[in-house]
Design a binder for these strands. Structure first.
Lengths: 235, 235
DNA sequence: AAAATAGTGTCTATTAGACAATATGTC
DNA sequence: GACATATTGTCTAATAGACACTATTTT
């Protein structure tokens, strides 16, 4: 009977909308220990290691709090990757979470930075372990839920315009979305109490002012629409 | 620096359609060791314990193979539950999978049996650890995917009738479904090559014979429809 | 007034759902 | 033929998507 030697960790794929841009960024943290010390990687912690955790969920929150002093707008477990090869220390297992952050989310220190998700997925930024895979899976889940739920709205500032919402949906989905369809979805959300018209306006440099909305979730899970945004895209 | 003592296991929520009935059953295995020896529980194994595993997925397949000598039609990781309380031995973590079995799936031995999912969820059959929760989560995922995918078809025999498919969808969903809608979905699947009309017929005791179909998945993941089966039900 | 941007209204296509109509078997 | 069941067809409702139209601001 050998001892059960499995290293358990949690890693966080924390996303925000890039400031003044239309794409997603992922929060990375410079590793403080071996292996891969000094490299940019997903923030994460060993589960119930030097610091006791009461639950996996708790460990995930601790990872974000300790490494980045951040509390996300939304967090969801995506899955667990475990095998004998992903960590040079041996058999390891990482349960990873998708966290959605507000667009203005600031981070302190030299050890933290946001990187474009696409540059990670396209390997222009290389991550240690299988962290690229974890980002890819989190991104896939986000895209899949975007077509039939209100999930992308968690990435918005407290007050947002229709175009902000459109940018978020498109960034999550990785493709263009019909703006009429999105407006109708926002209108339905408003009827259901999930979105509030603040009555305030935002004046762009030119043109008609934009209505400012507020996302007011009525439950822990996003609102589910009964149709996909992308009929052809399915499958 | 304390040692990282976390017990990692995989557990399988393997479901089949009850024979001659319209509901789901879950495969349980009588525990051979402490804790909870002799009780009916989800089949599972310790990850990379006495027997080496190369991956979590591999451990999940091993669990089904070792405990039940079964190869499922479909398997999907649902999530990981981990905390300090779920196992009396201490901090433990279980990654659990949903497995879908063919309706005739036989099991050998006194140590294996199918139980109605509802009797587990309603606590008429009590499972050790948090296994009831795992069954509930797997069932939720199945129901959620049933409204917009072909997932329930993995529960069918090689050749099935429209009514078989309807029974499966309704069992997965836990509620009645319009049979016209399901027929149209099957027709679309047929056009897409995901379902084949075998040309054969099944003669019920009375009435017109039933067409026999065959599920022929065109990819590893189920076919996605672009609308929900339950417009009102959403959210 | 012109330009630019936001927001509304109208029409089409698709598909779930209700239900009537038809087909094909047993007794 | 009567009956039972399966299958097809027709109609309605809801909503995504395309696009024309109107509204509101700056210059």
């Amino acid at each position: 009977m050998s001892s059960t030697e499995v290293l358990a960790s949690v890693d966080i794929v924390a996303l925000r909308m890039a400031p003044e841009a239309q794409h997603l960024q992922v929060l990375l943290h410079r590793r403080e220990r071996e292996p891969h010390v000094g490299q940019w990687a997903l923030p994460g912690v060993i589960v119930n290691g030097r610091i006791a955790d009461t639950s996996l969920e708790g460990a995930a929150e601790r990872a974000l709090r300790e490494k980045a002093r951040i509390v996300p707008c939304y967090m969801e477990q995506i899955g667990t990757e475990g095998n004998a090869f992903r960590d040079p220390r041996g058999w390891s297992l990482s349960t990873y979470y998708l966290a959605l952050l507000a667009p203005g989310q600031a981070v302190e220190g030299e050890q933290l930075a946001f990187f474009d998700v696409d540059s990670v997925l396209e390997r222009r930024v290389l991550l240690p372990f299988d962290h690229r895979l974890l980002v890819e899976r989190a991104r896939e889940r986000l895209a899949a839920k975007t077509v039939y739920s209100s999930l992308p709205l968690y990435l918005l500032a407290e007050k947002f315009t229709v175009l902000d919402a459109l940018a978020s949906v498109q960034a999550c989905l990785g493709q263009a979305v019909n703006s009429t369809s999105l407006r109708k979805r926002l209108e339905r959300l408003r009827e259901q109490g999930w979105v509030r018209d603040t009555g305030e306006k935002n004046q762009p440099r030119l043109g008609r002012p934009q209505q400012l909305f507020q996302y007011t979730p009525q439950g822990p899970r996003p609102f589910m629409f009964d149709r996909s945004l992308l009929p052809e895209g399915g499958q």
